[in-house]
Design a protein around this nucleic acid. Sequence first.
DNA 1: TTAGATAGCGCG
DNA 2: AAAGCGCGCTATCTAA
Length: 318
Amino acid sequence: MRRSHEIIPLIFEYRELQKLLGTYIDAIPPLLDKNDRLHTTFIQNGAVTGRMATKNPGLQNIPMRTELGRAIRKAFISDDGFVLAGLDYSQVELRIAAFLSGDEKLIDIFKRGEDVHRAVAAAVFKVAPDKVDHEMRRRAKVINFGILYGMGVLALKQNLCTSRDEAQRFYNDYFETFSTLAKYLDEVKAETARRGYTETFFGRRRYFDGIKSKIPFIRASAERMAINAPIQGTEADVIKLAMVRVQEYIAKEKLEKDVYPLLQVHDELLYEIKKGKEDKVIKDIEKIMRSIIDPKLTHGVVLEAKGSIGKDWGELKS
DNA sequence: TTAGATAGCGCG
DNA sequence: AAAGCGCGCTATCTAA
């Protein structure tokens, strides 16, 4: 309806401002302790996929996507004498999908160190990688994240603001290109129906009701959850292992007074590091994060992790 | 006044 | 009747 009346954009603008004001600017400052530090509560068994969650306040959903939102993130700063370090896994879920499925085309994209969205755009739109423009890459990104989680043609159409026919073509071309991935997703559905659960790379299970339901919507819903579970779940396992190994490293190197873990946001870790130690520590943590899964077990796909430094959270590149 | 449900939206 | 997964928080409404 955005274009149907001049008031609509204003309503969206009002909602954005009201969301930021009510949820963050008004609500968070009262939670600061006497040292102006914020203490969230980690829920370690709250999410069915194995992810953690945080509450009071939820610190895994601090704004970033809009300029005004990012301004709120800038209010999170490191202590005197310390810098903030953010370390992100790049495209973990797609890498996990690549090696869980064994799809050679997807695996090769990562083995060659290519930009996965650009490469997929090239494959789906049938052009050379250097002929991929910004819009094609954006669309490929939507397809990459959406299709993996069972997004249908109609949702794809909505997301790409295109016709049903064109969405259908993208959908077909994607699975024609990545046919082994398509086969894998079908196998996950079938195997989940047979066994009643999915497993992550590390063997953690999630059980499903509804996967054998005769009611189409119930079954389709369970199938989408089942497709997502091994991928999101493996990501959760990976970063938890990384967090443990980083703490072992901190203990071994006697860095307890120099490196403080602050936050985990599903595919990224936030630390506060004593000034002067950040370069070495970041390199070490990157190495730990990359080493969680041996590429021998992933058809050569490596886990890529990259750190960045800033005085405030908004400065960190991600 | 409180508890629960819903809409909407912030994040990965 | 619904058609991408996983969360938590605020505002709002209804029922008790």
